[in-house]
Design a protein around this nucleic acid. Structure first.
Length: 387
DNA sequence: ATTGCTTAAAGG
C-alpha cells in the first residue's frame, strides 16, 4: 500500500504518487465568512456534489497531472451510434488547423498568438517555435506558484487519450467545486465549440465576488512583466481577447448542454472505454463513481448545468516579476461583437481561407521581439515602402 | 513544428 499524496508544499513539482488510497485533503476550521458563503451557495441550490467532494473546509483542490508511460492506446471502439455525427465541419485539408490541430482542439493561446501576429504563428508551426525567453520562464514559475497556493497535485498514470480527457473533466469538476465552496480556483481547464471549432483553454483564475453583490464568478488573468512598464495597448488587447475566450467557454459550458456525442465523435473517442483501476479510484475519491469514460463526461455535463455564468466584467492584473508588485489592474467588459468578429478573423487564418496577415505598420515594433523577423517578408515590405 | 513533450500558456 502506498501513501496518500505528500502535503509538502515546499517544492514546485509535488510528484506524490497516487496508488489507490483515497486522497486525504487537509482540513481547516471553517470561518464565519466561509460559512456564510456556504449557506448562500447551498440556499441557491447550486452545488450538488457527493459528500466526499463537498467538504467546504478543504484547503486545497486536488488536481491530477497526467503521466503517460508509453504510447497511448484506445480501446477498440464498439458501435458508433449512427445518429450522432460530428457537427463541426472538418478542417480544410492543408490548412494549419488541419495539419497541426486536427487531432486536438485549437487552444485559446493559438487564437491569441495569431492575434499578436499570424505570420509569427505560421513561422512557428512550419519552422519550429522560438525558445522560451527568460521573461516567459519567470512567468511560468510565478503561475505555478499561484496555482500551488490553492491546488495540490497528484500524479496519475494514464493509458489512453480517453483517460487524459477524463482527468481534464475531473479537474474541472473539482475546480468548479472549489470555486463555489472556497470562492477561488486557479488553472481551470475548459473546452467548447467556438464558431464551429473545438477550443480548449485553461482559465488562470476564477473568484466569487466577496460582497453580496452577485453569485457570478469573475475571471481573472495575472500577467507578469519583466520590466516595470505599463503594458502596451497591443498587449492589453491580446490579453482581453484571451479572457473573453475563457468567458465564452465557461458560459457556454454553463448555459448550453455539453455536446457529448459531438465531442466523442470529433476526437474519435470511445465512450465505453473502461477506465483504469487507478483512475476509477481517483474518481471515486472525488465522489464520482465512474467505470467508463462516458460516465465521467456525464458527471461533467451535470456539473456544468449547475454552475453560474461568469461576470460581464473581466479582470487583468499586471504584476512585476521581481517583487510581485501590482503594475496595473484593469477591468473591462466582455464585448460579444468584437469577440465574435475577432474569432472569425483568426479562424479564417487557421482554416487557410486566406494568407497569414502581417502586423500593422503601427505595431511593426513587435518584429523586434520576433526571432523570425530576418526571414519575414514584412521587413522587405516595410523597406520597399520607405523608398 | 517542438520551450518542458502530456498539454496550454508563458511574455512581447
Amino acid at each position: 500500500m502506498n501513501t496518500t499524496p505528500s502535503t509538502s508544499t515546499s517544492t514546485s513539482t509535488s510528484t506524490s504518487t497516487f496508488n489507490g488510497v483515497p486522497i486525504q485533503v487537509p482540513l481547516e476550521i471553517i470561518t464565519e465568512e466561509e460559512m456564510a458563503f456556504l449557506e448562500a451557495a447551498l440556499s441557491s441550490a447550486l452545488p450538488l456534489f457527493p459528500p466526499r467532494c463537498s467538504s467546504p473546509s478543504s484547503l486545497f483542490r486536488v488536481a491530477a497531472i497526467a503521466s503517460l508511460p508509453s504510447s497511448p492506446k484506445s480501446q477498440s471502439q464498439p458501435l458508433r451510434s449512427p445518429d450522432i455525427e460530428d457537427s463541426t465541419p472538418p478542417a480544410p485539408v492543408g490548412s494549419l488547423l488541419h495539419r497541426f490541430r486536427s487531432r486536438r482542439a485549437l487552444a485559446v493561446t493559438d487564437i491569441t498568438g495569431s492575434e499578436w501576429c499570424e505570420k509569427q504563428v505560421e513561422f512557428g508551426l512550419l519552422h519550429g517555435r522560438p525558445k522560451r525567453t527568460a521573461a516567459m520562464e519567470a512567468g511560468s514559475i510565478r503561475h505555478a506558484e499561484l496555482e500551488e497556493e490553492v491546488v495540490e497535485k497528484v500524479e496519475i498514470q494514464i493509458k489512453s487519450i480517453e483517460e487524459s480527457w477524463a482527468l481534464k473533466f475531473m479537474n474541472f469538476m473539482v475546480g468548479a467545486n472549489q470555486l463555489l465552496f472556497e470562492g477561488l480556483t486557479r488553472e481551470l481547464p475548459v473546452i467548447g465549440v467556438v464558431e464551429d471549432t473545438w477550443m480548449i483553454g485553461v482559465i488562470d483564475e476564477l473568484q466569487m465576488p466577496v460582497g453580496e453583490s452577485s453569485l457570478n464568478p469573475c475571471l481573472v488573468d495575472t500577467k507578469t512583466r519583466y520590466r516595470a512598464t505599463i503594458p502596451s495597448e497591443a498587449q492589453k488587447r491580446n490579453a482581453r481577447l484571451q479572457l473573453m475566450c475563457y468567458k465564452y467557454l465557461w458560459d457556454n459550458l454553463v448555459v448550453n448542454d455539453f455536446p457529448t456525442g459531438h465531442f466523442f465523435d470529433h476526437f474519435a473517442l470511445n465512450p465505453q472505454y473502461v477506465l483504469s483501476e487507478d483512475i476509477r479510484q481517483y474518481s471515486s475519491s472525488l465522489g464520482f463513481e465512474a467505470k467508463t469514460f462516458e460516465e465521467v463526461v456525464s458527471y461533467f455535463r451535470n456539473t456544468c448545468s449547475m454552475l453560474p455564468p461568469s461576470d460581464e466584467q473581466l479582470l487583468l492584473r499586471y504584476e512585476l516579476q521581481s517583487d510581485h508588485s501590482i503594475l496595473e489592474e484593469y477591468k473591462f467588459s466582455f464585448d460579444a461583437n468584437w469577440f465574435k468578429n475577432e474569432i472569425q478573423k483568426r479562424l479564417e487564418f487557421w482554416r487557410g481561407e486566406r494568407e497569414a496577415e502581417y502586423v500593422s505598420d503601427a505595431e511593426r515594433w513587435k518584429c523586434r521581439f520576433c526571432k523570425f523577423s530576418a526571414s519575414c517578408p514584412v521587413t522587405l515590405a516595410s523597406s520597399n515602402k520607405a523608398e
